[in-house]
């Protein structure tokens, strides 16, 4: 039933070099916080491999280590054991350009939304190079275009505290996308949104993904979201988490949003639901 993984990865990537190396690889990576009696295993030794252009959704019960995996990949955490390879090199080498949307939107309170979203352009090459000249021109337009897409164009010059939780989450998404990352790490980016806005953003997300084909690792609690967006879904067990199921989603993209109410789709999400219900209770 599943086409093999490398067939999908062979799709051409529109920008950036095409390497044979996988975009992301966890080799028995585990994370233990603290030591001795107080040690907490946040992530049991985990294997995970993502080819370039993969869109993987990671689901699992709360506290199982999903955010921990994202932090490993973005080099905010080092694995206690094992290896984390990004673009074939250790995470700290920053081989790939990473865009990350944190679970809690962390806009810098002293900057306007526009300035916040522009931050990656100030830090990351090659944008950094021309930041001074472009920040009032091309970069500004790029930020405004993104804000427009997520329905926030009137809020560019507002400060974060003037926005609602859902609006902050949308800005957070813009900030993760603005520098056209090769590897996109999204930690429940649509959690605080109403169903309609959420579905709207799923569609935007899908368009953005199909446009540039970055590698995306999406953490979510919403199985429909996982099924609609991803082409591969991994399920994690309860803490200490491990990946217990890894299944492709064999629905051609772009997908129509109405599809999530089709019987096949409902059946697939039901299957995932039962799996998670099982691992929660064990």
């Amino acid at each position: 039933m599943s086409p093999n993984v490398s067939a999908r990865a062979a799709q051409p990537v529109s920008t950036g070099p095409v390497h044979a190396r996988p975009a992301l690889e966890l080799q028995d990576a585990s994370v233990v916080f603290g030591s001795g009696e107080k040690a907490v295993t946040a992530l049991a030794p985990t294997q995970l491999k993502m080819e370039r252009g993969d869109f993987l959704a990671l689901v699992g019960p709360s506290g199982c280590g999903k955010s921990t995996i994202l932090k490993l990949v973005s080099n905010l955490l080092q694995p206690s054991e094992g290896l984390v390879l990004v673009g074939g090199k250790e995470a700290k080498a920053k081989e790939l350009r990473i865009g990350m949307a944190f679970q809690n939107p962390t806009m810098l309170p002293w900057l306007t939304i526009e300035q916040n979203i522009m931050m990656p352009l100030k830090i990351v090459q090659p944008f950094k190079h021309s930041y001074r000249t472009d920040k009032k021109g091309a970069f500004r337009d790029r930020v405004h275009a993104l804000l427009d897409q997520v329905g926030l164009k009137d809020f560019a010059s507002h400060y974060p505290w003037q926005l609602s939780g859902g609006m902050l989450q949308r800005s957070n998404l813009c900030r993760a996308l603005v520098h056209e990352p090769d590897l996109l790490l999204l930690d429940e980016p649509f959690g605080a949104l109403d169903q309609f806005t959420r579905e709207e953003l799923w569609q935007i997300m899908q368009t953005l993904y199909l446009d540039r084909k970055p590698t995306v690792l999406l953490v979510t609690h919403d199985l429909r979201e996982a099924g609609y967006l991803a082409n591969r879904i991994c399920v994690m067990s309860a803490r200490p988490g491990r990946i217990i199921s890894d299944e492709p989603v064999n629905i051609p993209q772009p997908r129509d949003i109405g599809m999530i109410y089709s019987p096949e789709f409902v059946e697939m999400t039901q299957g995932l639901r039962e799996l998670i219900a099982q691992v929660r209770s064990t």
């Binding site: 973005s74 990473i98 962390t106 810098l108 931050m119 830090i123 990351v124």
Partner: peptide
């Protein structure tokens, strides 16, 4: 300073000075 705010820049590969 909240570590979360610094994390935003760290994921982008910012230097200590940045």
């Amino acid at each position: 300073t909240e570590p979360e705010l610094e994390d935003v820049l760290k994921t982008l590969g910012a230097s200590k000075t940045e």
